Computed example of a mutant assay.
Amino acid sequence: MSGAVAHLRDEGSPRQVVLAGAISGLVSRFVIAPLDVIKIRLQLQVHSLSDPLSTYNIQGPVYKGTLSTLKHILREEGLTGLWKGNIPAEAMYLAYGSVQFSAYTYMSHLLDAIPQPYHPPGSVISFISGAAAGACGTTATYPLDLLRTRFAAQGRDRVYASIVSSIRHIAEHEGPAGFFRGLGAGVSQIVPYMGLFFASYEALKPVLATCAIPMPFGTSDAAAGVIASVLSKTAVYPLDTTRKRLQVQGPTRSRYVHRNIPEYRGVTRTLINIWKNEGRRGMYRGLTVSLLKAAPASAVTMWTYERVMAAMLTMEKTLSEE
């Protein structure tokens, strides 16, 4: 392994990739859980203080900014309110991290095997592999993502008493399709997001690792993750908002902390509806806290993944030399 400048696709065995991906997912989720809850609350809000009755003429809770939302949740729901939906989210991040990095490595190796003169450039390999990894990870873990969103959207009045009851309720009242509400928006958002993220990360990683100012403890990996995350998240954010709005549709739509979530159908209709009634601000509501969440999440994920992988490779090498 060539230190911090090795490509992700060249690191570790399939089993090591799965384990490193799972651990990085668990660690990053716990760190960013409060910011995730704040982001979801802001994304589901269809009005602001400048428009208290909202374009839908329905009263409901009003949050203004990240700090205001944080204070409101702490005051109304206590500290545990910032970790609502964390159990399905931890399960989701564990599975997602494993699937994502495994799919990325597998697809990269497939594309690397394409002979000349058809062999694609490294940036193209990273983009396609990242897009495929995002699509696989999102589809495989989507029901957990939906549960995470619905629990995070609950206020003091609980919609679901437990994970088990939520699964039973959705299965009974919405059927199997209920677990995949908004999947189209999720996949259409994650494909360009993860493609841009991995392409940016792979390009930035060697540059930051060899920059004039040395970064301790492998933090060049974290820095590359932060920059790649900010660029890609901003580009696809409207689709993320669309996914959240679709995830809370169904018979419990009016029971969440926001009582005025409109009824949406389909990705395109939802995008048009938000743009028409809420404008550009509605499309990007919660972007600030999303970046505050995505940047450290990506930094922790990539730093943890690289450190765990390095530790496993070192251990493997030590054992082979004994």
Rank of each mutant, 00 (worst) to 15 (best):
Q189E: 15
L239S: 09
T210D: 06
Q100V: 04
A95I: 12
G60N: 11
D10E: 15
A212R: 15
E263L: 07
Y106R: 09
P88N: 05
K84I: 04
R156S: 13
T288K: 09
L292R: 01
I87M: 11
T66N: 10
Q59N: 14
D51V: 09
S126C: 04
S220M: 05
P120I: 01
M107K: 02
T314W: 07
Q247K: 03
A135M: 08
R29G: 07
I125T: 08
P251Q: 11
T314I: 11
S129Q: 02
G218P: 12
I272G: 13
Y160K: 11
L82V: 03
Y160G: 13
Y96G: 05
Q189H: 13
V62H: 04
P52Y: 08
G286R: 03
L246H: 06
S220T: 05
M312S: 08
S162W: 02
V300P: 05
G178V: 06
V289L: 12
L26Q: 02
L53G: 03
L239T: 08
R156D: 09
L204V: 07
I272V: 15
E316N: 15
I163N: 11
T69W: 01
I40M: 09
E321W: 05
A203G: 06
F101Y: 14
A4H: 10
R148M: 14
K244P: 04
A6Q: 14
P238C: 13
S232Y: 00
L239P: 11
G266Y: 07
L8A: 09
I32S: 07
I213W: 07
G225E: 01
T270R: 06
K71D: 10
A297Q: 11
A20W: 01
P52D: 12
S102T: 14
S320P: 12
A4C: 10
L183Q: 04
P52T: 12
N86C: 11
M215S: 10
A4W: 12
G186A: 10
I32L: 08
I274E: 00
Y118A: 07
P296F: 09
G97S: 06
T80G: 06
G130F: 00
M302A: 01
S126R: 00
S188E: 05
T270P: 07
K244E: 09
Y201V: 03
C211H: 13
R15G: 14
Y193H: 15
Y93P: 03
C136S: 10
R253D: 12
E278F: 07
D221E: 09
T105Q: 14
T301F: 12
A33M: 11
E321I: 08
K317W: 02
K84G: 11
S254L: 15
P52A: 13
T241D: 03
I40E: 02
A209S: 13
V31S: 02
A161Q: 04
G137T: 09
G65Y: 05
M283F: 10
I40S: 05
R181E: 06
I58T: 02
P214C: 05
V99N: 03
P206A: 05
M315G: 08
Q249A: 08
T141F: 06
V248I: 10
V230H: 03
G81A: 10
E76K: 14
G279S: 08
A311K: 09
G250E: 07
F30S: 04
G178D: 08
L291F: 08
T288Y: 04
L144W: 01
I274Q: 00
R259G: 15
A222F: 00
S98E: 06
I170A: 00
I87F: 14
P192E: 04
S298H: 06
G282I: 01
A185L: 09
S290V: 04
I163F: 15
S232M: 03
L42Q: 12
M107V: 15
